[in-house]
Amino acid sequence: MRTLSFLLLMSVLFISCRSNDLIRPGDTIEVAFEKAMNQYREGDYPEAAQAFETVVSIGRGTDIGQEAQYYLAESYYNDRRYLLAASEYERYAQFYPNSFRREVVDFKRAECYYFLSPRYRLDQSYTRRAIENLRLFNSRFPDSEYAEKSAQYIIELREKLARKKYEAANFYKRTSRYEAAAIYYDLVIDDYPETEWAERSLAEQMEAYILYAENSVPERQEERFRLALESYNTYMQLFPRGEYRSRMEELFDRAQDGLDGIAGNIRPSTSSTQ
């Protein structure tokens, strides 16, 4: 019975404390902001966000309104509601472009899109937006304490975009659409040359051209075997000690044998009339 009474008393006290943190009609903007800050400090970010929204709506143009705008974004950020956080950080930057908080606001806005970036198989709109915002941040604050982290984020996001294109190329290759595969491998090589997927793409592209040649009509085989050799030459220039060098040597021999067969009027194996 005493335990039940104690729990009831604590519940009443808890409700009373929470009630004291609610913004009421007649509260001054200072009181409303302090109530919002109390909820923020307690880690009650959803309630804090609602409270800061109220303060922002009544305090626009004041110093307290500016503070509330920042902590509104922070509340969404800490609650992992990143799309809302990014929007509020952007609003802060628009309203207060010369604020001493501009650096951290711009970084966290970009970081929100980084957190929203999904796994590589899904739509990469947020990934591209993150890269755009991170690059803008780096150009605006090159000496920032966040510059190294920002650069690392960009590397990670570009690896993801490169892999998405690489996997698309693999799909075309698996389904015998060799020309499309070669084009997509080329996009990886041209757009993301610093990623691990560029080296892989050159190896896969060379094999795609060989398969394309082997499954082509005789009059188109030579040019496609030569495209394979171009991939080999590019690989050797870019990755002379690369991970896939031995495979490239094997593919080189295969392409060269194909060309030798054409020169000697020995037709390589064909299975279609592409």
Rank of each mutant, 00 (worst) to 15 (best):
M10W: 06
C17T: 02
R18W: 14
N20G: 04
I29H: 05
I29N: 03
E42D: 14
Q50A: 07
G59A: 05
D63L: 07
D63F: 02
Y76E: 02
Y82E: 01
A86P: 00
S87P: 00
Y89P: 01
F95V: 07
Y96Q: 03
F107C: 07
F115S: 06
L116S: 03
R119N: 09
R121K: 15
L122Y: 14
D123K: 11
R129H: 10
E132I: 01
S139F: 07
E148L: 13
K149W: 03
I155C: 04
R158V: 01
K164H: 05
K165L: 08
A168Q: 12
A168D: 09
F171W: 12
R174E: 15
R174A: 12
R174K: 11
E179Q: 03
A198I: 05
R200H: 11
A208E: 13
A213F: 03
N215W: 00
S216A: 13
E219K: 12
Q221G: 05
E222W: 02
R226M: 06
S231F: 04
F239Y: 15
P240L: 01
R241H: 06
R241Q: 10
Y244L: 07
M248D: 08
M248P: 11
E249S: 05
D253P: 00
R254Q: 12
L259I: 06
D260R: 10
D260G: 01
R267E: 14
S272N: 02
